[in-house]
């Protein structure tokens, strides 16, 4: 009877929002509008992560992407006042025809390849040791935490070093001489 469950309705709604918002993000002229549509995209993707039983990643998506990165991008857009930037001088606002044809070709090939992979490739392989019921019994965040501080401790430390380098690099690059 119920061909499509509540989960299915939520997934379809969220994925339509993601696609619409990302198309709007890629096509708006004003970069601030682009950034705001990008935030909508990130929130809808967090909903999809929740449907896929990845609660930790959903929260991190909202906090890191929609919170930190988009805030940074919005600040930079306001810092470099864009009216002097692109897409104001007529005649240069569009790519040349050749470039657009090549770009369309590249993206059609790319999408065709991915479609072929999705349609004809069936993933095989044995299941891992974290089925959804087991993870739910312990808690998603706890499981990820145990993995991060156990098996993946060394990459985790390298990630923290990378963040440190990023902070220093951003300050040094953006500093006024």
């Amino acid at each position: 009877m119920d061909m499509i469950s509540f989960k299915g309705i939520v997934f379809i709604a969220a994925s339509l929002v993601v696609i619409a918002a990302s198309v709007l993000m890629a096509t708006r002229k004003n970069p601030i509008h682009s950034a705001l549509w990008m935030i909508v995209t990130f929130f809808a993707m967090a909903v999809i992560y929740l449907l896929l039983n990845a609660q930790f990643i959903a929260v991190a998506q909202v906090m890191v992407y929609a919170g930190a990165i988009m805030m940074l991008i919005l600040f930079v857009i306001m810092l470099v006042h864009m009216e002097k930037g692109e897409e104001t001088d007529p005649g240069k606002t569009r790519r040349s025809k050749k470039t657009r044809i090549v770009a369309a070709l590249i993206t059609v090939i790319l999408f065709g390849e991915m479609l072929l992979g999705v349609l004809f490739y069936r993933m095989t392989g044995q299941g891992g040791e974290y089925p959804a019921a087991l993870v739910d019994a312990v808690g998603n965040v706890r499981t990820v935490g145990v993995l991060l501080y156990g098996q993946y401790l060394f990459p985790f430390e390298i990630a923290s070093l990378l963040l440190l380098v990023g902070i220093v690099g951003a300050v040094v690059i953006a500093k006024r001489k």
């Binding site: 993933m123 891992g128 990459p155 990023g166």
Partner: peptide
Amino acid sequence: GSLSSMDGSVFVFFIMTVAAVEAAV
């Protein structure tokens, strides 16, 4: 999720870290 593994979440965590650093720089 379909392979009932947890490594996906860990990898996405690292990708997010790299994306944040990339955004700052």
